[in-house]
């Protein structure tokens, strides 16, 4: 009986071609997996798997090149936008993306981020903001909220000595090189659909050579926030979204 159910007519969901069969190493309930999937789906739907080159960061998604079924390069910590610049400059017709965490993009790689966008590199930057250093075990990130505890701010982030959470997305939106800048989430079906649409738009703009597209995804880190996946999503809605409100931050004027 159950065997008969698995037939082509009954197919409602299929893993995208643009992801490999490797088992994801992410913790249960982590947003990285979903973010990978929608980006891969866009690549598949646009039929650009062969023309896409991705850059993986250092962070929990350091092994992203195992999962995306496209050519990828692994960058040193924070240097992904520079590596992507190199790729795009020699392959202007390829679709180039970076996939970076908040530590990678907004701390050690701030200079690379700002300068790549300031040059208006025609690349897509996918920015996973989980407010923490996931990979190294929960240290404070530039995006860690005020008062939020981490292993290097065990009494909560004290903005007097540790700086304020960095709204890097609003900041880079000021740069003339930034063409489309948006902030999304992937914790609920409706958000997943919206985030995917944003990524698709960004990839389409890349064809027009208009400048850098930047999609932030506010995400969770159940392991280092020390919460269950469900709790972490609730906490994210209650605490992250007020400070990092979802929605478009800079949309193209010429259309």
């Amino acid at each position: 009986m159950s065997e008969n159910l698995i037939t082509p007519e009954n197919l409602v969901y299929q893993k995208t071609e643009a992801m490999t069969d490797r088992i994801l190493h992410y913790c249960p309930g982590c947003g990285h997996g979903t973010a990978h999937r929608i980006l891969a789906e866009v690549i598949e739907e646009m039929g650009i798997q062969e023309q896409t080159i991705g850059v993986a960061p250092v962070g929990c998604s350091v092994l992203a090149y195992y999962y995306f079924n496209v050519d990828m390069q692994e960058a040193a910590h924070g240097r992904a936008p520079a590596v992507a610049t190199g790729i795009k400059r020699v392959f202007p017709d390829k679709y180039v993306f970076t996939y970076q965490g908040d530590g990678d993009l907004a701390a050690i790689g701030t200079a690379e981020t700002i300068h790549a966008i300031n040059r208006g590199e025609n690349i897509l930057i996918v920015f996973i903001n989980n407010g923490i250093y996931g990979m190294t075990g929960g240290q404070m990130a530039p995006t860690t909220l005020q008062g939020m505890k981490s292993s290097t701010s065990p009494f909560g982030r004290d903005t007097k000595t540790m700086g304020s959470p960095l709204k890097i997305t609003e900041l880079i939106a000021q740069l003339p090189g930034a063409y489309f800048v948006t902030r999304q989430a992937v914790h609920k079906p409706a958000n997943v659909r919206k985030a995917k649409k944003a990524i698709k738009k960004a990839m389409e703009y890349q064809k027009l050579n208009k400048g850098t597209c930047f999609v932030e995804i506010v995400s969770n880190c159940p392991s280092n926030w020390k919460m269950t996946p469900v709790q972490s999503n609730k906490w994210m809605e209650e605490n992250m979204f007020p400070f990092y409100p979802l929605g478009d931050i800079k949309v193209p004027e010429d259309k």
Binding site: G103, A107, I108, T136, Q139, S151, T152, P154
Partner: peptide, 20 residues
């Protein structure tokens, strides 16, 4: 400092033990 395994405990310990 900046976190990196296997030495992140140095800054974690310092932050937790309030040398300030």
């Amino acid at each position: 400092g900046y976190p990196i395994t296997p030495q992140s405990e140095v800054i974690e310990y310092l932050m937790a033990n309030k040398p300030e």
